[in-house]
Amino acid sequence: MPDGAPAEPEAATLDPAQSEILATLEAELGEGVIEHTDALGNLVVRVRPEAWRRSAEVAKAMLGCDYLSFVAGIDWLPAPAPGGDDDAGVEPSAPVQPTEMTFGAAGSEGRFQVFAHVQSTARHHGVTLKTDVDEAKPLAESWVSVYPGADWHERECWEMFGIGFDGHPSLRHLFLPGDFEGHPLRKDFPLLAREVKPWPGLVDVEAMPEPDPEPEPGAVP
């Protein structure tokens, strides 16, 4: 169902498995759980930054979530307006996103968030955990001591968003060359190719071919 209301804690109806997961998290983390919701069948729980690593430990030890799917970041700053919509009638070359800052399921405190998904291979359930990251000093706790696979995911998150991870063995570039400047997935990192020229597919430069001339009456087809 469309989730239209932004940043409002929803009294979502959870199924029994999700309620159990939520109850365990609330029992172990106490004040650490801020909000929760059900996003199209997926339980999303937002926890405080200081409870981030503890929530991973609880998921692994008590919820049986032995499988780490991913750890990633998100920047809620509104997307920049696409070029090419100066004149009226000229179609913008990229989708136009809303200009006000709204947040997703289970809300957010600010611009940056780190979110992760863990699953249980035996009990066939999973949970998405989110936490807020301070924009002035982007730092989150590292999950490497709980899930060793988080090593590369956190390196990618640092590289793309600039979010540091406290306790990570070595935060260095993963995808980009060593001398790359900037954090590409931030919304204020401009995609220069799009600024310089709009998407070439919008405007047809070649004229359509002339239609075939009418055959003369009596001519053999």
């Binding site: 469309p2 989730d3 239209g4 932004p6 996003a39 199209l40 997926n42 999303v44 799917s69 991913f70 990633a72 998100i74 989708p95 136009v96 996103q97 809303p98 709204t102 997703g104 399921a105 979110f115 998904h117 998405t128």
Partner: peptide, 25 residues
Amino acid sequence: PAGEAWSETENPLGQMGYYVFSKGA
């Protein structure tokens, strides 16, 4: 419509998933 969805499948190489955040655009 605005919302977020997590969709995962058993792809030949393993588990592949997309977490899609939409704002109605």
